[in-house]
Design a binder for these strands. Sequence first.
DNA 1: GGAATTTCCATGCATCCGCATCGAAAGGCG
DNA 2: CGCCTTTCGATGCGGATGCATGGAAATTCC
Lengths: 146, 146
Amino acid sequence: MALPAATTLLAWTRLLRAADVAGQHCAATLRTVGLPPPEWYDVLLALERSGAQRPRDLQTRLGTEQYALSRLIERMAKAGLVTRTPCPDDARGHTLALTIQGLAMRAAMWPIYAEAIETALGARVAEEDRAALARLLAPLAEPISG
Amino acid sequence: MALPAATTLLAWTRLLRAADVAGQHCAATLRTVGLPPPEWYDVLLALERSGAQRPRDLQTRLGTEQYALSRLIERMAKAGLVTRTPCPDDARGHTLALTIQGLAMRAAMWPIYAEAIETALGARVAEEDRAALARLLAPLAEPISG
DNA sequence: GGAATTTCCATGCATCCGCATCGAAAGGCG
DNA sequence: CGCCTTTCGATGCGGATGCATGGAAATTCC
């Protein structure tokens, strides 16, 4: 295994820094207006887009750790945004579904979240560069050794 | 403020995902061989490269939150990797310096860390693409509105 | 010089995360 | 069927994080 080239190290530090800056900005923006953090949005969106589903499916879709998702779901259920109903054909699990409030919350979060994304990324990179960036990041967004 | 374009959203999701995948891989690699997490490396490297310095300087250099750095330093001091000596010309603060063990720890971490970076990034993106990626990420790694 | 402000660092508290593990159900296999 | 392995989801526990705040020293301003 070769040691990293200079371009690798530069890309590495910038990748981590850029994601941190952007992520923090979004989380902070949502928080200052009293809305839940971005990961709640991801769950709400996934349930809205792909319909009611089991935690395992959500876990694969979002790429979160099992225990992290378990507790995230618990908090969101406590907040009345999702429901956990027993799964008919697998008594181990349950089916997650959005509530009306969950649907409303996603709708309420979107404008704020969208503007934060625009500020953190859209407004700072030209259109053609964003396309190139997305293309270059594609392989890195895949799980390692898969 | 315009809402995000499609390329913005794609770049956004991939940026966060890529950084998470890469960061997790590195942290996990270090942990499985019993070494401290990546942020310890960053502190050790900064102290080695730029010499003894105050927490504030380190904070600016690394872009961490003040309280996070304060507690990180405390853990590293407890582990014997850095020392905190009273600052001669500012009685509020102190000067951070590497110990011999801190120097040794950075040296011990580097091969493992480097290989993890190579696996997570270097081996998955071509040389010319890494250069392009670093260039495209440069503006995003800067603090927002600064 | 003295008061108000700002900078520097630490910390109480609640929350969240990571790891390991657990209980329960499903699936595989003789 | 009875046993063993795998999958699903929750959780105890220690530790890390974020937020707010605190205290102390430095700086600014009059």
